[in-house]
Structure formats: C-alpha cells, structure tokens
Design a protein around this nucleic acid. Structure first.
Lengths: 216, 216
DNA sequence: TTGATGAGTGCACATCCGTACACTCAATGG
DNA sequence: CCATTGAGTGTACGGATGTGCACTCATCAA
C-alpha cells in the first residue's frame, strides 16, 4: 500500500484535524460539566480529565477557562442564528407567524439544550468577559429581529426605537419560555402548557403593540 | 454602677445578639463576595476570612454554603414582598398604575441591588436547592400579582389561567428591566432609556391583553 | 531524508479547599 | 456562685487546583 499525501493510510486524520477533534472534545466536555453549575465553578483539571488529556494539555487549545467560555458563546449564537434563519423561511404575512416561530424555538431548544442552558446561565453568572460577549450577541439578535419585524404589515410608520422596544420584549418573552421549557425537562404536558402560554403572551403583545401604536 | 439584667453594663449585647450579628456579617459577606460570580464558586473559607472568623466557625451558623444560599433567597424575597406592598399603596384604578409600579421597582432595585442581582444569577446558576427555592418564590410572587390584577377593571371575566399568563409576562418583563438597570449601573441616561422602554412594553401588554381578551 | 514543529506527557510546587478534633473562656441559668 | 453551654479558636489532614518546566515523538515541510 502506497502512502502519499492523498492517501495517508489507516490514520486518516492530519495533525490539524486531530487537534480540532481535541478542541471539540474540550468544548463538549466543558458544556457538559458546567450544566447544573456555572463556568465560574468549572476547573481546568475537571475538563482535562473528562477529555482524557493531562491538565497542562488544555493550554494548547485555550489560554484559560474564560477563553473557552468565549468560544462556547460564539458557538451558541451560531445555533441561535440558524434558528432565526429557520423562522424566516415562513411567509411573514401569515397569521400563524407566532405559532410557527414558537414551534421553531421549541425545536431548537430541544436540539440545542446545552447551548440554551449555557447562555441562560452565563449571561448572569459567567466571567465578566463572557457576560459582555453574551450581552453584545443578544443585542445583535434583537436588532436582527427588529429588522424582520419591520417587514410586517402595519409597522411601516414605526420608529427604529419602537421596533427595538418591541423586539426586546419578544426576545425577553421567548428566552423566558425557552428557559422554562428546559426546566420542564421531559414533561410533555407541562411543555404544552408553556407553549400555549407563550402563544397567548406573544399574541397579546402583538395585538397590543399594533393598537397601542395606532392610537398615537 | 449597678449591673442588673435590665442594665447589663458597657457590653450591651447578649450572647444571642452577638451570634445574630455574626450571622448577619456572614450573609452580607457572602452576598458581597459572590457578586460577579456565583454561589457555586464561593468558598466557605473566603466567607470566613471576609467576616473575620476562622473557617470552622462558619458551621456554628450554617451547615453549608448551600444552606447559606437558601437563607439569602429567603431574605431577598422578603424585600421583594415589601416592594409588592409598596405597589399596592397606590389606587389601582388610576391610569398611572404602570408608571408608579415601575417607579417602585426602580427604587427597590437601587435600594436592594445585591438582592436583585443575587436572585437573577442564582435562579439559573445556583446550587439545585437554591434554584428550586427561587423558582417556588417567583411562582408565588406571580400568583400574588395575578390576584392583584384581578381587581383591575376589565379583568372580571378572566379565568385564573389567563391571569397567571398575564402576570407571568409582567414579571418576566419587569425582571428583565430590573436586570438591565443593574447592568446599566451608574449611567442615568441609559437607565432613563430602560425605564421608558419598560413603560412602553407594559402599556403594550396591558392594551393587548385587554383588547385581545375582549375579542374572544 | 532530515530537521523543525507542536500536541500531548509527567512531575513538581505552592496554594486553596472542606472538615475533623480538641480547645478556650465569657455569657448564661439554676 | 458554680456548672453548663456554645461561639469562636488553632492545628492538622488529604485532596483539588493552576501552572511552570523539561520531555517525547508523530507529523510535516523542505
């Protein structure tokens, strides 16, 4: 069997690929280990042990737990951005906009449990740099949602500030729902109740925003 | 100078009073030390050093950091209950109900910064028992608010469930505002923006809830 | 083929952690 | 007045933590 750069033999991974695998393993291990507590209570040695490398090996990938946290924030918001994209796949003029948005949210919460729980925790409890990164990303997320809302019929005359206020309320309510669904865990009937509640809340907000706005 | 039980002399504190003072010092120290991180990253030794007692002395007052956390939850919600009482001092029929509620909230956030920050952090990041205690207390708080809302004109025909959904949204929005105000710190113009935003949001919700409800 | 690179190792160290145990000695109540 | 109580002390321990340093040896570019 000839070993060339195209056919590297029984160990197909390049050096860089192997490093990337370890990096992934570290990220996954950290996400798993800090469930139920927080990044600030996570030690480098725990992570290393979970991954199966020696403590000092950690430094080949991150310079600190805080830096690891920033990478996890990045990653989490990539998945959130995918969620927004899924929401946009629907025609925004339809009446079921709220229903479909919540469905997409719930699906993503289930698919990305760990990421949602991570940002919900660390936005308040994480290391300062992590908290700031999350705050920045959420603000960005709200701005994106605001520009989506702008395309809804009935919001043409709204100011940018009004749209920000509305999308802030939406995000707040949706985050609260996501967290509640996470806490509900594997209790389908409780989750159903939460989803129904979120539906009602968003409808109230939407109706209120439109009529309140038209009164001015 | 005669020393009697009514006149204990130059050291007026009884044994129990001195113990209570130390207990308070421990609670205050813990609240101060876990600002910017979390209970789960707080060590018994740090607390003891801050208070000025030896580590093992801690056990005379709490059996663990988690037990200390439960006491802090208790304390925090006492101050929240006082806030609700202040809100109720206003005539609920007035149009400025939302304004006055937000004013009361902001005043309490400033007066009880540490308590607000504590529950905002630990409800997601704290030890399991602490998280559960906070969840229970918030639920109770929502129920109280719901029964207050019931006395508002226009909500007579609402079901209990509807009231719970509405008060849940109110609490969610108010907590988000409180947290944002805390993060704004000493920036009056930013805080003013946040308060104005909260006002708008609550009005939208109230208007929406009333009109959405009457449509059914 | 060979020399450089760098992911992961192994050991050492000082520091922090929770907690067990025996103690002191002022306040307390009978 | 005197025996009891209990808040706070002091020492000591085994284990976890972050990190410095010298190392190996597979991979990779030249």
């Amino acid at each position: 069997m000839v070993l060339t750069s195209e056919n590297p033999g029984p160990r197909p991974e390049s050096r860089a690929e192997r490093k990337e695998q370890t990096r992934r393993a570290i990220l996954d291990a950290a996400l798993r280990l800090c469930e139920g507590s927080s990044l600030v209570a996570l030690s480098l040695r725990q992570v290393a042990k979970e991954v199966g490398i020696v403590p000092t090996g950690f430094y080949r990938h991150f310079e600190s737990i805080e830096a690891l946290g920033l990478a996890l924030v990045e990653e989490s918001f990539v998945s959130l951005r995918e969620m927004l994209r899924d929401v946009r796949l629907h025609d925004p003029a339809y009446d079921d906009l709220i229903d479909s948005s919540i469905d997409v949210l719930i699906a993503h919460v289930h698919a990305q449990q760990a990421h949602f729980a991570f940002i919900a925790r660390e936005r308040e409890a994480g290391p300062p740099a992590v908290r700031e990164a999350i705050a920045r990303s959420i603000e960005l997320f709200e701005r994106e949602l605001a520009s989506d809302l702008q395309r809804l019929p009935g919001t043409d005359a709204w100011t940018t500030e009004d749209l920000r206020i509305l999308s802030n309320l939406f995000v707040t309510a949706l985050v609260a729902t996501a967290v509640a669904v996470l806490h509900a865990g594997e209790e389908p009937e409780e989750e159903k109740r939460l989803v129904e509640s979120a539906r009602t809340q968003l409808r109230m907000v939407l109706v209120g925003a439109l009529s309140w706005r038209s009164e001015r």
